[in-house]
């Protein structure tokens, strides 16, 4: 019984890796259910894919967070700085670098100090909403999230964040 329970748990934990196991790349696990496409967008994976392969798992069972999404990225170089952007959408996501089918490094993601052209300024009277231009935000606090628009200087929190 005990053995079976343990194996069951092990199976569930391993599933994101087993179901569509990747050899080299990045696995982003424990994304809140329904946010996988946001992660794809924030990482700029929705265009110019080249040879890279993106695999999504949505609404999977998770012991840790109930329901979750998983995103796997193969054949695509992503810097830690880029991966940090995930924290905007999924601050508690597990980001694992995979080499030779094994986890080679677990990343602690952290919202970058500066956010360039990632999010839309929620202030409709901000210059960035009135001209075709890049947005720039400065992170002033990570927990709770507070970011300041470099243009209109207003401060926003996590609920206001909308991706570009």
């Amino acid at each position: 019984m005990r053995y079976s329970q343990d194996r069951d748990r092990q199976d569930k934990e391993d599933r994101p890796y087993k179901v569509f196991k990747i050899k080299e790349g990045v696995v982003i696990d424990h994304i809140p259910a329904g946010k996988a496409l946001h992660v794809v967008r924030v990482l700029g994976l929705s265009k110019n894919l080249g040879d890279s392969i993106i695999t999504l798992g949505m609404n999977l069972e998770s012991k840790k967070i109930g329901k979750k999404d998983v995103v796997k990225i193969e054949n695509k170089e992503l810097t830690k700085e880029e991966l940090n952007k995930i924290a905007l959408i999924a601050p508690n996501a597990s980001v694992n670098m995979i080499k030779n089918e094994h986890v080679s490094e677990k990343l602690n993601i952290m919202i970058p100090a500066r956010l360039e052209n990632i999010i839309i300024c929620p202030n409709p009277n901000c210059i960035t909403r009135n001209y075709d231009m890049k947005t720039k935000f400065t992170t002033i606090s990570r927990d709770p999230l507070k970011i300041r628009c470099n243009y209109c200087e207003r401060i926003f929190d996590r609920d206001d964040v909308e991706l570009k």
Binding site: N125, C126, I127, C149, Y151, E153
Partner: peptide, 9 residues
Amino acid sequence: HPIEGAARL
């Protein structure tokens, strides 16, 4: 300028 952030731009 009436739009916020215009001077920064």
